[in-house]
C-alpha cells in the first residue's frame, strides 16, 4: 500500500510502486482531468504539481510521490477561480480541450515563480506542452492576462 496526498486528501493505494502517478490518478483514484497523451514525457498533457513543481505524471512513479503533496487540475481551485482558469474562460482558449489541463498546470508554476512573464518566458516555460489544435496564441495571451489579474487582484 502506498499513501498519496492528492488535492489535500489522503488516498491509500494498492498498486505497484513503479506505477506512474498518471495511471493511479486516472484508473484507481478516478481523477481523470490529468490526461494521457504520449506516455514518454513529450506532450505535457499529464502535468501535475508535486510539492509545487510541475512534473509529468506519466513518468513519475508513485513511489516518488509518496510523502509529497500532489495537486491535479481538479485541485487547482474549487470554483475555477485560479487566475489562469479565469483567463482561459475570458479568452475562450480551448478548442478540443484535451491538452488544456496540462497547459494550465504548467502555466500555474510559471506564474507562481514569475509574476510578470515576458512572451519569451512563456514560450520557454510552455515548450513542453503540445496543443494539436494550435491554441498557442490564446494560451500565451491567457497567461499574460492571468499575470495582470494576479498583480491587480
Amino acid at each position: 500500500m502506498i499513501t498519496l496526498n492528492i488535492n489535500k486528501k489522503t488516498h491509500r493505494v494498492d498498486a505497484d510502486p513503479n506505477t506512474p502517478l498518471l495511471w493511479v490518478l486516472r484508473d484507481i483514484i478516478g481523477l481523470v482531468g490529468t490526461k494521457y497523451g504520449c506516455g514518454v514525457a513529450q506532450c505535457g498533457a499529464c502535468v501535475v504539481h508535486l510539492d509545487g513543481e510541475a512534473v509529468r505524471s506519466c513518468v513519475t512513479k508513485i513511489s516518488r510521490a509518496q510523502g509529497k503533496k500532489v495537486v491535479t487540475i481538479e485541485g487547482l481551485s474549487e470554483t475555477n477561480s485560479h487566475p489562469l482558469q479565469k483567463a482561459w474562460l475570458d479568452l475562450d482558449v480551448s478548442q478540443c480541450g484535451y491538452c488544456q489541463a496540462g497547459q494550465i498546470m504548467s502555466a500555474a508554476v510559471l506564474l507562481r515563480e514569475n509574476k510578470n512573464p515576458s512572451e519569451q518566458d512563456i514560450d520557454d516555460a510552455m515548450a513542453g506542452n503540445i496543443c494539436r489544435c494550435g491554441t498557442y496564441l490564446r494560451i500565451r495571451e491567457a497567461i499574460q492576462l492571468a499575470a495582470k489579474d494576479q498583480k491587480n487582484g
Partner: peptide, 23 residues
C-alpha cells in the same frame, strides 16, 4: 455574436468529458 464554449468551464477544471475518461 460571440458566445463562449459551452463546455469551457468543464474543460479547464478537468471534468470527465472525453472517451478516455469514460468509466
Amino acid at each position: 455574436s460571440s458566445r463562449k464554449n459551452v463546455e469551457g468551464a468543464k474543460i479547464i477544471s478537468g471534468k470527465p468529458l472525453f472517451g478516455l475518461d469514460y468509466t
